[in-house]
């Protein structure tokens, strides 16, 4: 059955309509959870507000469980779902730079659009920065093309690398996440801050 677009149940244009609807859901949930506030986002790194950690991991786990159950019921063919490719060097370097950008700028791309939609001027400036950053990457592409393409590992699943089933890995991740949630709530008590 799913993914609908790959199995040609919906057309290319309907897919774009769905993209828009899914985006509305995405933006709505982000804003409702408080991702439109950079100080709230940054809170996770100082322990006073762990909303990012909680939403992020709960979402990843929900999505993962959903996908596994959908596959189990035969509703979704997981082999047709896009799995992000892994290029080890560029993933790590990109992640490090993004982490720096996160703590300096206070947003990530998705949340900055969300913040901008409710009038945060710093979010608009952050988005302007994003455009410059992407353009810079494109402009200087030959300089880091080699690094960008280095250590291509294909699209491996973590579970396969560890030699365990997807389900078992999901269970482990759930347990790890719950421990982190517990620790985060302790930290929130220790570093109390007002709501932003």
């Amino acid at each position: 059955m799913g993914p609908l677009i790959v199995n040609e149940i919906i057309t290319e244009n309907t897919n774009l309509l769905f993209a828009f609807l899914i985006g509305i859901g995405f933006g709505f949930v982000l804003e409702q959870s408080g991702f439109s506030s950079s100080r709230k986002l940054a809170g996770v790194f100082y322990g006073y507000d762990a909303v990012v950690l909680k939403v992020f991991f709960t979402a990843a786990i929900t999505g993962m469980l959903g996908l596994l159950f959908f596959s189990l019921f035969g509703w979704l063919d997981l082999s047709l779902v896009y799995i992000n490719p892994t290029f080890l060097s560029s993933s790590i370097l990109g992640g490090v730079i993004m982490g720096a950008g996160f703590i300096i700028g206070g947003y990530c791309p998705g949340t900055s659009f969300c913040g901008a939609s409710i009038g945060k001027i710093d979010a608009f400036v952050f988005i302007a920065g994003l455009f410059i950053g992407v353009a810079l990457f494109g402009w200087g592409f030959p300089l880091w093309e080699k690094l960008y393409l280095a250590k291509d590992l294909g699209d491996p699943k973590v579970s396969r690398l560890l030699g365990i089933s997807d389900g078992l890995f999901a269970l482990l991740l759930i347990l790890v996440a719950l421990v982190m949630f517990w620790a985060a709530e302790l930290a929130e008590k220790k570093f109390p801050r007002e709501e932003y």
């Binding site: 560029s90 993933s91 993004m98 700028g105 998705g110 952050f126 302007a128 353009a135 494109g138």
Partner: peptide
């Protein structure tokens, strides 16, 4: 700072083939 962070994040997201989401 927001602009600086944005530039870094923009560059990093391309290098890392995707952002946080």
């Amino acid at each position: 700072l927001a602009l600086t962070g944005g530039i870094l994040f923009g560059w990093g997201s391309q290098m890392g083939r995707g952002c946080t989401s």
